[in-house]
Amino acid sequence: MPNISPPIYIHDLTLNYQNKPVFSKLNTTFQGGVFNILLGASGVGKSSLLKMIAGLLPISEGQITCEPTASLTSQISYMAQQDLLMPWATVIQNVMLGSKLRKEKQDKSKALHILEQVGLSNVVHQYPSQLSGGMRQRAALARTLYEDRPIILMDEPFSALDSVSRSKMQDYTAQLLHGKTVILITHDPFEACRLGENIQILVGHPAQIHLIPSIQGSIPRHPDDIHVQQAQANLLNLLIEKSAI
């Protein structure tokens, strides 16, 4: 697969909400081919930033570019907090939704293969309402994988899950999205430390980005990992400290 996972550059990006700056002149880089984690409290503008990258929110000031300079919108796949599965379609139909929407041929064997990878082989023809929350989110992950885009944007995709399902989802995600440019938004320092190869936090009013030193070990890092636990504590402290300003 000649998919090169490009880095994403944010230049002087500004977002105003009700005439107040949420963030202004934001500059950062999301590295290509790794898990970029963007950590921050609710309402700090993380989701808006992700939507701007996804082309879902208009950019009033600043620029978002990627390398090579092809259009971003055809390279991204977006995964939200809700699974956004269509209730009228079976699991496999949901996975292949993108093909249908782009009037392309549906690749059934590819969809089946992906569903096998996420452990949903036995519910291929069931409807989303018949699945548990964790299974639904795995189906959403399968849909994201089916799109086969080099850039994956994830907006708190696991926050609605219980901790066991969440931990499993983190494992699946780290494995299956390996090599892609992932930007994952979360408010959970633990998740950031398990999955982050490049961790940035977005804090303050107006919000600013801070880079966090990288954590040892390849992802998904084990919860027992001493580095994970240390980094998590540091991260939490940093969040509290920065938010207090």
Binding site: K51, A54, G55, L56, T73, S74, I76, S77, Y78, A80, Q82, L84, M86, L97, G98, L101, R102, K103, E147, L153
Partner: peptide, 13 residues
């Protein structure tokens, strides 16, 4: 809104 956004990111006409 989420479904519409998903459709957009999938480049739906």
């Amino acid at each position: 809104a989420g479904w519409i956004e998903l459709g957009k990111t999938m480049n739906a006409s």
